[in-house]
Computed example of a mutant assay.
Amino acid sequence: MAHDPKTLQAAMVAAVPDLELTYKPMFGGILAYAGGKPVASLSDVGLALKLTGPDHAALLGLPGAKPLQYGPDQPVSKTYTLVPDGLLADPPALRDWVHKAAQAAAKAPARKAKKT
């Protein structure tokens, strides 16, 4: 099922009004950031949260969750997981998962600036 990134963004905004997220257009989709670090990809394939460790494994364990893959010829993500459609309709549950992604982002080291 194809998703609309703007509809996914509205679902995130509704689920986490207490979390300061910024949204930037990226490659036909939207990337959500917390504290300047990416936490979610919103695209036509769905809402994918960036998680690591036990939280990543727990989300993948939910029925309908799977690693993000933008297309059949594209690589499978090691850190982004597509949330099941049922989670999009459950704001309290989605809130918990977005908060986990934001917490993971806060712990992630800052990216090094590229040398020119």
Rank of each mutant, 00 (worst) to 15 (best):
A14F: 04
K24C: 02
A11L: 12
M12G: 00
G29R: 02
M26E: 11
T22G: 02
G28S: 14
D18H: 06
K6A: 15
A14Y: 05
L19D: 08
K6F: 15
E20D: 14
A14G: 07
D18P: 01
G36Y: 12
E20Y: 01
L19N: 07
F27L: 12
A15Y: 04
A15F: 06
V39I: 14
P25A: 07
L42N: 03
K24H: 11
G28M: 14
A32F: 04
M12E: 02
T7V: 11
V16I: 09
G29A: 09
G29T: 07
Y23G: 00
A10M: 07
A32E: 02
Y33H: 12
P17H: 12
L31I: 06
F27K: 04
K24I: 00
L31H: 06
K6Y: 15
A14C: 05
K37H: 13
Y33Q: 07
A15M: 03
G28V: 13
L31F: 07
S41P: 02
P17L: 10
A34N: 08
A11C: 12
V39P: 08
A34D: 06
A10E: 14
A14T: 08
G29L: 05
V13R: 11
L19E: 09
M26T: 09
V13F: 01
G35T: 09
M12R: 03
M12K: 02
V16D: 01
Y23A: 00
G29D: 02
Y23N: 00
L42P: 04
D18N: 04
K6V: 13
A34S: 15
L8H: 13
P38G: 13
L42K: 06
L19F: 09
A11N: 10
T7R: 14
T7A: 15
K37F: 12
K37S: 13
L21K: 02
G36V: 08
E20L: 05
V39L: 13
P38C: 09
L42G: 03
P38W: 11
T22S: 12
V16Q: 03
V16C: 07
V16N: 00
E20K: 07
L42T: 03
K24V: 01
G29M: 05
G36Q: 10
A34G: 09
G29W: 00
L21S: 03
Y23M: 00
A10P: 04
G35V: 09
T22A: 04
K24Y: 04
A10Q: 15
P25R: 08
V16F: 05
M12H: 02
F27E: 10
T7S: 14
G35R: 05
A15W: 04
L31Y: 05
L31Q: 10
S41I: 08
L8W: 14
G28P: 11
E20R: 06
